[in-house]
């Protein structure tokens, strides 16, 4: 057998064996991983409305308890009405944060483009339909230390108290500034911007666009909250 054929054969067999083993590992561990991901998403929902503190660790049961006590998954139809079941293809998921049977805030799942991949997280808006109560990211592919800072508390904390409306009460969304808000943004608009991450202008740009697109889709719901139609 020539040296050339031997190399090709060896490479083929090795790839097959390695590929097979990896497939086995990933299918075998899939259930555990999915469970972890679900728990992590629930944790992020709770974090966006301030029910979990960042530094503490919580048991799975504690998270499940908090979640079932305070969070209801609902759907929004195209007129902005909240319905318990998904009906049409255009209905959007929303999580309601309940306190003493009142809706304290609503949580919108965010799917945005990032620089290197998808960014997924949650944005919680208070029941006035305008003020942001929290923002979290549970999955992204951005560069650690640069765009990856979007998962850090200092960045997410800046969203708290910002609003998606301008002075006239029109929808403008919330965006990430290039640089700091104080230095770059005129006074009247500062409440619509959060501090950017230095070295990650593109991540900020994509995330701003993603937030605007998503918030725009949920605008009928936000309007109802602003007109006090949902309690």
């Amino acid at each position: 057998m020539s040296k050339y054929i031997k190399s090709v054969l060896f490479a083929a067999v090795l790839s097959l064996v390695c590929g097979g083993l990896l497939t086995l590992a990933s299918t075998g561990l899939r259930d555990y991983q999915l469970k972890n991901m679900e728990l992590d998403m629930n944790k992020n929902i709770l974090k966006s409305v301030g029910l979990l503190e960042d530094q503490k660790s919580y048991s799975t049961a504690a998270v499940a308890q908090l979640y079932s006590d305070h969070i209801r998954k609902m759907w929004v139809d195209d007129e902005g009405k909240v319905v318990p079941e998904k009906k049409g293809g255009i209905d959007l998921p929303v999580y309601l944060f309940l306190q003493q049977e009142n809706v304290n805030a609503y949580i919108i799942p965010i799917q945005s483009r990032g620089l290197w991949g998808k960014i997924a997280g949650y944005l919680a808006i208070k029941n006035d339909g305008a003020t942001i109560s929290g923002f979290t990211v549970y999955s992204h592919q951005e560069t650690p230390g640069l765009g990856g800072e979007i998962e850090k508390k200092w960045f997410q904390k800046n969203f708290e108290g910002k609003t998606i409306l301008d002075d006239q009460g029109d929808f403008v969304s919330v965006a990430i500034a290039k640089g700091t808000v104080k230095g770059q943004i005129p006074k009247g608009r500062q409440k619509n911007y959060v501090d950017g991450i230095s070295g990650a202008t593109m991540t900020g740009k994509f995330l701003s666009a993603g937030l605007k697109e998503t918030l725009n889709k949920y605008e009928p719901l936000s309007k109802r909250f602003r007109m006090n139609e949902i309690k």
Partner: peptide
């Protein structure tokens, strides 16, 4: 994969 499954 193991870390993702057990030490997420």
């Amino acid at each position: 994969q193991v870390l993702k499954a057990f030490l997420y």
